[in-house]
């Protein structure tokens, strides 16, 4: 999937500098970072409401290209700077995790 395919559906806003299209392969949704660590796979989009520097660190360690924050969660400027540096795209959407998944997959 591509960011361009989902952005309008979820009314998402890209918070990082690079606004170009990014590919991802499936979604991993979760807030407990140990679960993300053991279950998310490379190139997954990480869908979460957990917003702190560790969220970026985990995405970076696992090569997750996109973090999509649900429920209108907005990361700090420090997180956005780190994500820019690590080339991870941050997106925020006002919808809940479940609504985001429904909108993306049309279910």
């Amino acid at each position: 999937m591509r960011v361009i395919d989902i952005l309008n559906k979820i009314e998402g806003k890209i918070l990082t500098n690079d606004q170009s299209d990014v590919f991802f392969e499936g979604i991993y949704a979760g807030d407990l970072l140990s679960n993300v660590m053991s279950h998310a796979r490379e190139n997954n989009l990480l869908l979460t409401i957990m917003s702190n520097m560790n969220t970026i660190a985990v995405a970076c360690l696992l090569d997750l290209p996109i973090i999509l924050f649900a429920e209108g969660v907005i990361p700090t400027d420090e997180m956005i700077d780190k994500a820019n540096e690590e080339k991870i795209m941050l997106i925020s959407s006002k919808y809940s995790v479940v609504d985001i998944i429904r909108k993306i997959y049309g279910i």
């Binding site: 407990l32 970072l33 140990s34 679960n35 957990m50 702190n52």
Partner: peptide
């Protein structure tokens, strides 16, 4: 509140 404390860490490390 930071997303830790799932109790999976040591097992993840061992695996």
């Amino acid at each position: 509140t930071y997303g830790f404390g799932a109790g999976m860490g040591l097992m993840n490390i061992k695996n």
